Amino acid sequence: MKPRRLKGHEAAVTCCIASRARPGIIASSGEDGRICWFDLRCKDVLFTIDLGEQPVSSLCFKAGNEDIVYASSGTKVLCLDIHMVSSWKPLETYNYNKDEINQIAYSSKSNFLAAADDSGDVKIIDTSQQCLYKTLRAVHTSICSSVQFLSWKPWAAITGGLDSKLAMWDFSKGRPSNVIDYGMPEVDGTVSCGNVGQCLNPAFVHSIAVPETDMLLGLHKACAVARGDGVVDVIDLESGLATMKSKNFSQSKNFQSRSKKSGIQAANQATGRNLGKRIQLDYSLGGHTAAVSCVSFSLFGERGKFLISGGNDACVKLWDWSRYFCAEQTSCNNDLILNIDVKKKVNWLCTTTADSENLVVCDTSKLLKIYTVL
């Protein structure tokens, strides 16, 4: 499968996002401190925004107004208006994170922005008031690599980190409601561990994907997790939350006054084990043979029908995960639809809403690669 290559960066591309309001419009960021804007109908980059020497680690659109894009660079989040690219001066700058930011996300239901950083903290920023709203901490003991809001559940966010933990939060209270520790031995007899005896590549959480509201028709309210042991874990969050109701952290009225050590101990005690409906897409099913770096639900065709993952094995996998959740299948042996060898380690990926079913891949080269997958 020969890709189309988009040029504009001078170093590795770290992130890409696809416009939903303008099919075919792609924004990407790189280690060169640059944001590139592409229109797939054109051959060349439309324009670039140079933010400085520090890498731009993550991008996201403002919900409901894709003329506004947020970018994380170092410990800062910058708000940019694409109609002001000639000056590239940020409309707003948020500098609440104390360590390097790994991912930012914007809520589809409110004016909140989340920024996850290397300290393990997540800053929730109220962009309407331009102030810090909450800090989510005392769960992740290492780098917090990913954060997402839940589109169907107000005041809910989910985070993952290189401590192998996946945490769900009520960010209005700054409290975790459930913590899953992938570093703990599996005790759920209904779930097979994809990489039994794994020791060289721990199950760090590198990326989280959550379906948007228009993807949920006929599908469960799920979360996909890209893990360092080569597994893509897909969890029915509603079922998982129901089983953890009796262990909710709201039992403690003094959570915010606890020390960090006590908070970590409490999180470990509430680690979720019984996760309800769940699938693990691993190497035994044709999956990744190295760490999975990113995962995304498809925007083309029947939105959310496919799950796409990229990894350090320089492969991109296309999974028909919905067959298991919707048809009550007991096996996912036929869920791998497509395997693409992209030759380079995959940093990030996204899909477009265009009819051509485009897959956009960021890898360790200086190029964006566009594949037509179906």
Rank of each mutant, 00 (worst) to 15 (best):
T127R: 12
C16M: 03
R5T: 11
W348N: 07
A327K: 10
A222V: 01
T372V: 01
C193F: 11
I208C: 00
L299R: 04
A63F: 04
D363A: 00
L275E: 07
A11Q: 04
G263A: 08
S284E: 12
A203R: 00
R41C: 07
G24Y: 11
H288Q: 10
Y94F: 07
A105M: 02
K253W: 07
P55I: 02
N248W: 00
S72I: 04
L367N: 10
A270S: 03
P3Y: 08
T75Y: 06
F149G: 04
L136E: 06
L299I: 00
K247G: 15
E92C: 08
W319K: 00
D44F: 04
K134I: 03
Y70P: 03
C332D: 09
A354V: 02
T75N: 15
Q280G: 14
H83M: 10
N358F: 04
R278V: 12
G197E: 09
G310R: 02
I104P: 15
V225Y: 11
V205G: 08
K165T: 12
S110I: 06
F249K: 09
C193Q: 13
G52I: 02
A167P: 15
R41G: 10
I279K: 04
N312H: 04
F306T: 01
G304F: 01
K317G: 03
K317S: 05
D32A: 09
A156C: 12
A291D: 03
K123I: 09
I158E: 15
S246T: 13
D341Q: 11
A267H: 11
L80M: 14
Q256K: 10
C326K: 13
P211L: 05
C79V: 02
I68G: 06
L113K: 10
M184L: 13
T93L: 03
C15M: 03
V360G: 00
L113S: 15
G24Q: 15
G276S: 01
L78F: 00
T190R: 15
R20H: 09
E302F: 08
A114Q: 10
V139D: 06
I143Y: 13
A114D: 11
R137T: 08
T93I: 10
G174F: 02
D282I: 04
E357I: 05
S110W: 08
N339A: 15
L281C: 02
S298T: 03
T289Y: 13
G183S: 06
I25Y: 13
L136S: 01
A266N: 13
L132C: 13
I235H: 10
C223E: 06
V234W: 05
V179F: 00
V56A: 09
G287T: 03
F38I: 05
N339G: 14
V292W: 01
D67A: 09
N248H: 11
L217S: 15
S73D: 06
L162S: 15
N195M: 07
V292K: 02
E302C: 09
R20V: 04
L216C: 12
L285W: 13
P90I: 06
E328I: 09
Q265A: 12
Q130N: 00
S86D: 07
D117C: 12
V232G: 11
R227D: 11
T48C: 05
G218L: 05
R41I: 00
L336S: 06
L217W: 14
Y96S: 05
E302V: 09
Q198H: 06
I101Y: 00
